[in-house]
Nucleic acid binder design. Structure first.
Lengths: 210, 210
DNA sequence: CATAATATGTAGCTTATGCAACAGAAAAAA
DNA sequence: TTTTTTCTGTTGCATAAGCTACATATTATG
């Protein structure tokens, strides 16, 4: 999170008595939402982990984004332009808040504080999203699988402030996130271990360089 | 452009008497700006074409974004997180308007209409940027050079409403934009011609499928 | 205009990556 | 618990894509 505003601080205060928000719970594997044109949904992941997944015509699966607690998603942040399917899948038990953007940005007639504070901070939250997207682009423009892995590890390491961390994604999902073949990625991971660049115990990564 | 607001409509009215904006002209090849942390510049390309270019530690050059008339850019849309150099290079004679985001978002004390209208429409403009970035991500997640080319052509074709169009980038730049090797891209382009998928006369592309 | 600089187009060789297939480990479901 | 499913780890093979080099075309520049 780059902005000063943090949803978490008042997630516990969440008592929305306005009818603009809908709160739902999903179990692992369920589809939280499918992106459709002209709806402009804005969702907040209050609890759990989820993936925005795209299936293209060649059958390739791409993890477009990985969401953890307090992440924002929905059509507001991804205008549907192509005819590929875009699904948000729950990776664990999830609690999600649903808004419609056009309603959210108007002041709440019920004086709902959560609603109003969220609307007020929307511009910064959207700018944070832009930063995330640019980071993702930087990751995807890495030319080799090795460079993609190293940059990905470096990003997580910086975020966690530690050279040791658990992968937030399974290796299968990581391959789909980096847009590379899984077995090729596994091979590269082995080479990175042989070159003493990283160590790996289960899903725990240890960066050895620098 | 997805939003209803279009800068072009009042670009001609531009007569900013507030001291918040700076207007400058650049000739081809000049550096318009270098992205630096914590400045939050917002720039509008009033005239010309420019590229946001990144040079990484391996010497790879990536065209992160290509800007044409009325495009918005600057640190507002790209928080500098890594230590790669980010430059905006003029590809032709350019006229650029510079703002600092924090000043822009406040109402103009000089009653400058351009300033105020721009500030008012900023949220939509930023959401448009998000759409662009997502499109770019979709492009970069294409697994093969062929698929990248076909998707890129398809995007331009949709934008121009025509199966025939001039490439907005040179082929050398296109390779850096798609994050592939230029010679490999040329080879694939030749194969696409042989397969009667596209035709190509100079920098003019003709889509033959469907 | 001449000359320099940059872009395009092509080829040979090498390597990285995708694909298919499978075995064992781990996790989920019955 | 047992069974089923999903994930991890690995290999051989085929091929896409990177790298180098160079010739020609096109575009800038003095």
């Amino acid at each position: 999170m780059n902005s000063n505003f943090n949803i978490e601080n008042f997630y516990y205060n969440f008592s929305c008595n306005c009818n603009k928000a809908q709160k739902k719970t999903f179990s692992k594997g369920q589809i939280i939402t499918t992106y459709i044109q002209k709806r402009n949904q804005l969702c907040i992941l209050l609890k759990g982990n989820a993936d925005l997944v795209r299936y293209d015509l060649n059958g390739n699966r791409t993890i477009v984004e990985h969401f953890s607690k307090n992440a924002l998603f929905g059509e507001v942040f991804y205008k549907v332009t192509t005819n590929n399917e875009l699904l948000v899948e729950a990776k664990s038990k999830c609690t999600v808040l649903f808004y419609i953007y056009d309603q959210l940005k108007e002041p709440c007639t019920h004086g709902c504080e959560f609603h109003n504070t969220l609307a007020e901070h929307l511009p910064e939250l959207i700018l944070d999203k832009i930063t995330e997207l640019n980071t993702r682009i930087e990751l995807l423009t890495q030319r080799t699988t090795r460079d993609k892995l190293l940059m990905y590890f470096s990003l997580i390491s910086t975020r966690k402030l530690s050279k040791t961390f658990e992968l937030p994604l399974s290796l299968t999902d990581l391959a789909d996130y980096l847009s590379v073949d899984r077995s090729a990625m596994m091979r590269e991971l082995k080479l990175l271990k042989e070159d003493k660049m990283v160590d790996k115990i289960g899903n725990r990564i240890i960066l050895l360089y620098e």
